[in-house]
């Protein structure tokens, strides 16, 4: 798992994707920071993280996940990966955690806004950390879903579009709210870690990781 993890993480920074993802996150985060905090003089960061999760992840998650398996399949490098002694599960987790690590990096950057607010009135640290933890769970669940999408097509663009659509439809149209990740990011922005939200998000992530494993295993026999 770690071999794949290291290589994938490095690849994010060898290609522009890692920088673009972090850049986009910071732009979205800054704009929302202006709207939810600066312009109205609020120091609570709940709305900031909520709206970034709602809007920012739409861009960042597809960026991070669209290449994961589709590119490997298209260029044939999956043959190198899958004929190595590494297990499919290990490979999938390696890729998954590399993307999650990128989110962790962006979240560390987001702490600089906390520091900015400290100059005026320090927000409570623990609730803020709860928001960030929740954000990480939402992002992980979205990454797992994006990774699954990437495993079913060899076209990166299609992978990205399906991922975006799957994130947009439940959040913005009210359809399929069962799979709406934002439904499970309601209490975190208030600084509360709700067990049901944690479990739902984790279950969502685990489900899509399992789907990905099944798809990759199955491809061995139908291909």
């Amino acid at each position: 798992m770690w071999a794949v993890y290291k290589k994938e993480l490095r690849n994010y920074f060898l290609s522009p994707i890692g920088y673009v993802a972090i850049g986009v996150f910071l732009i979205v985060f800054s704009l929302i920071f202006y709207v939810t905090n600066i312009s109205i003089g609020a120091y609570d960061m709940g709305n900031l993280y909520y709206n970034t999760a709602l809007l920012g992840l739409l861009v960042i998650v597809p960026l991070l996940t669209m290449r994961m398996f589709s590119e490997e399949r298209k260029t044939g490098t999956e043959q190198l990966l899958l004929t190595s002694p590494r297990s499919i599960t290990g490979i999938i987790f390696g890729k998954f955690f590399a993307a999650v690590t990128l989110i962790v990096i962006t979240l560390i950057f987001s702490l600089s806004y906390y520091i900015v607010l400290c100059f005026f009135k320090a927000p409570n640290l623990l609730p803020t950390l709860a928001m960030i933890f929740g954000f990480l769970l939402v992002a992980s669940a979205a990454i797992a879903m994006g990774m699954f999408v990437s495993s079913i097509t060899e076209n990166q663009v299609i992978a990205a579009i399906i991922t975006i659509v799957a994130l947009i439809i439940p959040s913005f149209t009210g359809l399929l709210t069962v799979i709406d990740l934002m439904n499970n990011y309601q209490k975190f922005p208030a600084g509360i870690i709700s067990l049901s939200e944690v479990i739902n998000l984790l279950a969502y992530a685990v489900m899509f990781i399992l789907f990905t494993i099944i798809i990759m295993q199955r491809r061995k026999s139908v291909k």
Partner: peptide, 24 residues
């Protein structure tokens, strides 16, 4: 494999090293 798939973003050494890692 056929067509010699490679990771184009890596250098030769990085690639061979990655293959070595993958192969335990």
């Amino acid at each position: 494999p056929e067509g010699v798939p490679l990771y184009n973003d890596l250098t030769v050494k990085e690639f061979v090293n990655y293959m070595a890692e993958l192969k335990l």
